[in-house]
Design a protein around this nucleic acid. Structure first.
Length: 454
RNA sequence: GGGGAAGUGGCCGAGCGGUUUAAGGCGACGGACUUGAAAUCCGUUGUACUCGAAAGGGUACCCAGGGUUCGAAUCCCUGCUUCUCCGCCA
């Protein structure tokens, strides 16, 4: 959620950003129905909502002030002579009843107005970094660089298989049983794949730790309001999130949720910042609306395991942007260690997602599909998530004066999502004889340097 | 799962329907005294919304949400959390 003051102070900026990101806040205000100025019309409606809220706040405050005055008048009645007290009380009681009635009505209207405003305001996405490429197709992302040598399978004399063929031939996954027990896109890892999965987790955790991230395993479930605070929409029709029946809990789609929520409602000491935490969790995704897309194998599944990096920084753009680069560097170091060729994308405005101010993805080369596939993603969400989770810090005193708390900036990034990393490793390291070479960095964790041939 | 107890400011802790403007203490900050420090004394002290150019004013917040009342930290209901005892369990 953005600071509502921005709506009052710089509405043009919000309209321009809505336009760049192509985000419709009100269903009836899109470019078809409202024309070119739909974004401007959206902002105007938001401002009207906000004004109504403020008017009702003023009205309510006034009534409560009168109620307080009435109460103090009542206190003084006790000092009057006994025979005068009753006569003095009656009108005050009457007035008090009136005020209570009025205040109740105003409070009701206020609750409605604030619900309407916030429901809309929450859909307004974060501002965007000025360098974010504008556009909303996959071609609009800016490719910053590539790393690594892609293997020339033709020169090696064989046709690369995709990871599912490799894994099935080596008896590393069991999708059939997964489907029987839990449904399509659930799976069992089998044999060496189990150890490889654990090795990836341990490798990523060691890397996170080396870079100063405090390690955590996190709950795999979280409360709805924590999800909300981080900008996930557990309700909604196309939600990516599983909800647990008869509770306010959801299965987390990423440890971003549990790590980000960890310090909700707290005012942090500036010495604690930047606060670097890493979390190992399972990730559950409904993948609603993505049926048929990249449906083969481990690439898009309902459950996987991930080591996530998370940072809370002082609420200054220079600092969070520097941290964002640092997180991207770590992600690159991790995949360089795994010897996976990849490219780095600066994600375009239309594909940022609500909370992100800027987002970089790493896409690994996946020979099986002959294309790039997303393996990590790191976002600087600035204060957008912090505002709803009320995560603040108190800046150091200036001239001996205590400073007001400020919102932290929050960043998240993937260290390793094991399922996608498995895809990349199996496909890039497959051998002509059907075996798969294990990257040197993982061998100490696995205890073997090759799977197969069988 | 069942029974008890408890949730008050940065922390400890009093208050159980209107003299509370939440006592008192600790801590922190500022000042006085001091060559400096300690001790002592004096003062200040949270979060947010809102009005205002500012000075400053108003409102809310005693775990959360409802309710009773002219008036709630205080009474009632529901929930959450913590502690504790019993049962069950890896």
């Amino acid at each position: 959620m953005l600071d509502i003051k921005l709506l009052r102070e710089d509405p043009e900026r919000i309209a321009a950003n809505l336009h760049d990101r192509n985000v419709q806040v009100f269903p009836d205000l899109d470019s078809e129905q409202a024309g070119e100025s739909w974004a401007k019309a959206t902002v105007e409606r938001l401002r009207a909502y906000d004004q109504k809220v403020r008017d009702l706040i003023a009205a309510g405050d006034n009534l409560r002030r009168e109620q307080n005055e009435n109460s103090s008048a009542m206190k003084k009645v006790g000092k009057l002579a006994k025979d005068e007290q009753q006569a003095a009380r009656t009108p005050l009681i009457e007035r008090g009843r009136e005020l209570r009635e009025q205040e109740k009505q105003i409070a009701e209207q206020h609750a409605e107005a604030i619900a309407a405003r916030d429901e809309a305001w929450r859909r307004v996405p974060n501002l965007s970094h000025p360098d974010v490429p504008k556009g909303h197709t996959d071609d609009d992302h800016a490719q910053l660089r590539t790393w690594g040598e892609r293997r020339d399978f033709a020169a090696e004399g064989f046709e690369p298989k995709d990871h599912l063929d490799i894994a099935e031939a080596l008896d590393l996954v069991d999708f059939a049983s997964g489907a029987k027990v839990a449904g399509q896109k659930f799976y069992y890892l089998v044999n060496e794949a189990v150890l490889l999965d654990l090795a990836l987790q341990r490798y990523a955790l060691d890397m996170a730790r080396k870079h100063g991230f405090k390690l955590h395993t996190t709950p795999d479930l979280a409360r709805v309001d924590i999800l909300d605070g981080l900008g996930f929409n557990p309700r909604g029709e196309s939600t990516q999130v599983y909800s647990v029946a008869n509770s306010d809990l959801c299965l987390v789609g990423t440890a971003e949720i549990t790590l980000g929520g960890m310090v909700a409602d707290e005012i942090l000491d500036p010495e604690q910042l930047p606060l670097l935490v890493a979390g190992l969790s399972h990730c559950f995704r409904t993948e609603a609306g993505s049926a048929g897309k990249e449906s083969r194998g481990l690439y898009r599944v309902h459950q996987f395991t991930k080591v996530e990096l998370f940072a809370f920084t002082v609420g200054e753009l220079e600092l969070s942007e520097a941290m964002h680069q640092r997180m991207l560097d770590i992600e690159e170091e991790i995949f360089q260690g795994l010897e996976i060729p990849y490219r780095v994308l600066d994600i375009a405005s239309g594909d940022l997602g609500g909370p992100a101010y800027r987002k970089y993805d790493l896409e690994a080369w996946m020979p099986g599909r002959g294309g790039w596939g997303e393996i990590t993603s790191t976002s600087n969400c600035t204060d957008y998530q912090a505002r709803r989770l009320r995560i603040r810090y108190r800046p150091a005193p200036v001239d001996g004066k205590k400073q007001k708390p400020k919102m932290v900036h929050m960043l998240n990034g993937t260290a390793v999502a094991t399922s996608r990393a498995l895809v990349a490793i199996l496909e890039n390291n497959q051998q002509a004889d059907g075996s798969v070479r294990i990257p040197a960095a993982l061998q100490p964790y696995c205890g073997f340097d090759r799977i197969g041939p069988r």
